[in-house]
Nucleic acid binder design. Structure first.
Lengths: 146, 146
DNA sequence: GGTCGTTTGTTGGCTGCGCCAACGTTGGTT
DNA sequence: AACCAACGTTGGCGCAGCCAACAAACGACC
């Protein structure tokens, strides 16, 4: 059983990034079962919660680069999960809207993700889970605004 | 100020991966100042803590793929931070050893990383930091072996 | 009106990290 | 001798994050 250097295991940044690798892999597996990836989920979630929006706005809400939004929306359009129409009021923009099929896909991904959360937090008590979530939320909010 | 969907912000896997992005970026910036990356730090740390080892063993200790170890060691050799010599007792293996220059580089990266931890945990009290570290360690240990 | 700066969509590219398949060489087992 | 396992190496893939550039369109200002 090979050991990991204490220099690494003692550093929160190491714990965080390594655990994120596991979380990411689990989520990817879940998404993969419905033929999707993380970017798709973020966009569908933003559309469902805030309604139709331009690509730039979607990017901001989903913490994605504009260029990555283009590619992901292309794929979602191709599958009929989303509709892209030019904005008549601002000809620079596209309006992206969720379709019923997209809504169904979002629910499928939701179910897959819920399972992931449970696997991820496996050995933690309900109280510990809450504590962890609270701490992570605080930190993320702090760094979100640089 | 654009909002992020609650579907995302409520999921530990989202908090974890997004916060990991920040942590990774901060660490990358720190490492970048001494012209290195995460892989280099992992290898140097393993060498310093456990002594000279074969590449395969280093990979296991640093949670890296064999092929990625090859490339990273090449770069460390090129900079004189590490020496690679054939193992006379097992001609399949190379013995990788830390040089004094490598040790100095490790210390430089250590200092950069310490700063990162502080920035990362910025708004947390000492007690909260300890709690977070404890929870993350528990989770990582759980997923490491399965 | 015309000019300037900004926003938007899009293309193309780059980096880090994790991972996998294949191959030849070498060791250990039987 | 035959087999399987481990090692180093090459080459390649996927996801996520990011940046630069461009043309088109918008807004504000004089």
């Amino acid at each position: 059983m090979e050991e990991t250097p204490a220099r690494l295991t003692s550093k929160p940044s190491w714990l965080l990034t390594q655990l994120a690798v596991h979380a990411h892999r689990m989520a990817s597996d879940g998404f993969g079962e419905v033929g999707a990836r993380g970017y798709h989920y973020r966009l569908l979630a933003a559309l469902h919660e805030f309604g139709a929006a331009s690509q730039a706005e979607l990017g901001r809400r989903s913490a994605m680069d504009r260029s990555d939004v283009v590619a992901a929306i292309n794929q979602l359009v191709e599958r009929g999960f989303v509709e892209r129409t030019p904005d008549p009021d601002d000809r620079r923009r596209n309006i992206v809207a969720l379709t019923p099929a997209g809504d169904a896909q979002l629910r499928r991904m939701d179910r897959a993700l819920d399972k992931v959360q449970d696997d991820l937090l496996g050995p933690l008590t309900a109280e510990d889970r809450q504590t962890l979530t609270r701490l992570l939320t605080r930190l993320l909010a702090h760094h979100r605004n640089r």
